[in-house]
Amino acid sequence: TTFEIRVGDLRITLHNADEEEIRWAEEALRRGIHADEILRTLEERRR
């Protein structure tokens, strides 16, 4: 599944994310964390 998060002009697309990952990514985007860093962190958490 694919889920797109939008916060203002910012956007990130997550693939195969669970609800916790989606909530975490949305909050991180709101705090101004760059999408590349969010994706990198999620990848590390999945390992």
Score class of each variant (00 low, 15 high):
Ala28Trp: 08
Trp24Cys: 04
Gly32Tyr: 03
Gly32Ala: 04
Phe3Asn: 15
Gly8Lys: 02
Leu39Trp: 07
Glu21Asn: 03
Arg40Tyr: 06
Arg23Glu: 10
Thr2Lys: 11
Ile38Leu: 09
Thr1Met: 13
Thr13Glu: 05
Thr41Cys: 10
Thr41Ala: 10
Arg46Trp: 05
Gly8Met: 01
Val7Glu: 04
Ala35Ser: 08
Glu21Ile: 06
Glu4Phe: 01
Thr41Leu: 10
Leu29Ser: 02
His15Val: 11
Glu20Thr: 10
Ala25Leu: 11
Leu14Phe: 03
Ile38Pro: 00
Ile12Thr: 01
Leu10Asn: 10
Leu39Asn: 05
Arg45Asn: 11
Asp36Asn: 06
Gly8His: 02
Leu10Ala: 14
Asn16Val: 06
Arg47Asn: 13
Glu44Val: 09
Leu14Val: 10
Thr2Cys: 15
Arg11Asn: 09
Glu4Val: 03
Val7His: 04
Trp24Thr: 03
Ile38Arg: 00
Glu37Cys: 12
Arg45Cys: 08
Asp36Ser: 09
Arg45Ala: 13
Asp18Ala: 07
Arg31Val: 10
Glu20Tyr: 13
Asn16Lys: 04
Arg31Phe: 09
Asp18Cys: 11
Glu20Asn: 11
Ile33Leu: 11
Ile33Val: 12
Glu20Val: 12
Asp36Glu: 13
Arg11His: 14
Arg45Leu: 10
His34Thr: 14
Ala25His: 00
Phe3Leu: 15
Ile5Ala: 02
Glu27Thr: 09
Arg6Asp: 15
Arg31Ile: 12
Glu4Ala: 00
Gly32Arg: 04
Arg31Thr: 13
Arg47Ser: 13
Leu29Val: 09
Glu21Tyr: 04
Arg11Met: 14
Ile22Arg: 05
Gly32Gln: 05
Leu39Arg: 04
Ile22Phe: 06
Thr41Arg: 14
Asp36Val: 12
Ala25Ile: 07
Arg23Trp: 08
Val7Gln: 02
His15Ser: 06
Asp36Gly: 09
Leu42Ile: 14
Asp9His: 06
Trp24Asn: 02
Trp24Ile: 08
Arg46Tyr: 05
Arg46Asp: 06
Leu29His: 02
Ala28Lys: 06
Phe3Lys: 15
His15Arg: 04
Thr1Lys: 14
Ile5Trp: 00
Gly8Phe: 01
Leu39Lys: 05
Leu42Trp: 02
Arg31Met: 13
Glu26Val: 12
Arg45Ser: 11
Glu44Met: 07
Arg30Ile: 11
Arg30Ala: 07
Thr2Phe: 14
Thr41Glu: 12
Ala35His: 06
Thr41Tyr: 12
Leu39Ala: 03
Trp24Pro: 00
Leu39Phe: 14
Leu29Glu: 01
Ile22Leu: 06
Ala17Ser: 05
Leu29Asp: 01
Glu43Ile: 07
Arg30Tyr: 09
Ala28Ser: 10
Trp24Lys: 02
Val7Pro: 00
Asn16His: 06
